[in-house]
Design a binder for these strands. Structure first.
Lengths: 190, 190
DNA sequence: GATATTACTTACTAGTTAGTAAGTTGTCAA
DNA sequence: TTGACAACTTACTAACTAGTAAGTAATATC
């Protein structure tokens, strides 16, 4: 039929959304198919297994992130502005629509995840931590940030707090999420 | 038969573990039954619905927490020691066995949770945040802690970072979790 | 105009899910 | 000794899960 050439992309968009909203165990091929107005098997045509679909979502997300951080528009920014850009990723994640970050969603279900997806989760988290570490390190050297301890540990604290705060927003409202973002900034200027 | 009078407690223990390890959508009555060496219907005898089982887990956890914080052994502690006690709850949660905190587990699947369980999640998070807020406030007044901004916001940051760090430990190892705990303490002594 | 390919649908399977109805058995109280 | 009750088992159901095999229709290629 060739009714649309970008079905694959639309499936990925929807599945990424569902992963953020309901978790890996919380969505099915039927969810995707019905929302797209196609049959179950059509989704299997594009992504043979759920495992493969999950991996494709994370791989695309990682590619996107790596493209951004290697782009001059971000790379040449001052550390404080780099951090603002990073925080904006989480702020734009639509916590008001109950969306959380992919890393947090996957890590929560880590134990019941297929191995390939676990490896993708490890890689994503590693990349986020590394970039945040480099930015904090650069910022402390330039005097833009001030904090005790190792940049790697501070990076882990910031990332885990953003991850947790998006989840907390579901129970306590988005105000709590924004409070965590602001508190993180405050704690870097002490 | 009356083979054991504490089956109900054993089910709750196991289900709480499974909730921490696999999430609400990740475990089933069959998991519990097989691990306990009983049949599916035996679990339904004690907890008629999964909804009810989930609520009972959180209710017990909340009761336990409230018992502790109202006990003189904790209540009369100095703020810094109170915080150490709180952090120890998370350290003792066995991140090495892939366990995460209940609040984080439930919030991640919040969108696909029955309403009664959502309300339990809200109540639990509210109680944790309130206690942490009070302790931080008391500690700042006494000079034990030092931080910018509101105690409520700092409480949200600490709680969400602990929650996120337990999840992150699954992908990055327990060392990252302990790093976040230590960094949180460092950030209160600046 | 024949052939191949892409993007599906129809129709299925085997396994798992929460949940139920009707029985069974050991224990305890009167 | 009887009968009630607690704590189960057996045997089921309806709905959902990922995944498959075979067929169909539109389009692109030769």
């Amino acid at each position: 039929m060739a009714r649309s050439t970008n079905t694959q992309r639309v499936i990925l968009d929807l599945a990424e959304s569902l992963l953020q909203e309901r978790g890996y165990n919380g969505f099915s091929y039927a969810h995707i198919a019905s929302e797209l107005g196609v049959k179950n098997a059509a989704v299997h045509y594009h992504f043979s297994t759920k495992d493969a679909l999950g991996c494709a979502i994370i791989q695309r997300y990682r590619d996107r992130f790596n493209l951004w951080i290697n782009n001059a528009r971000i790379k040449d920014l001052a550390p404080a502005q780099k951090l603002d850009w990073f925080l904006a990723i989480y702020t734009n994640m639509r916590a008001d629509k109950g969306k959380i970050c992919l890393a947090g969603s996957l890590e929560t279900e880590f134990t019941s995840l297929p191995e390939a997806l676990r490896e993708q989760t490890r890689a994503l988290t590693r990349e986020l931590l590394t970039w945040l570490h480099d930015t904090l390190s650069e910022g402390r050297d330039s005097g833009a940030f001030r904090f005790n301890g190792e940049p790697a540990d501070k990076a882990a604290l910031i990332l885990s707090s953003l991850q947790g705060a998006l989840q907390m927003a579901r129970a306590m409202g988005t105000r709590k999420f924004h409070a965590v973002v602001e508190q993180n900034k405050q704690d870097l200027l002490a």
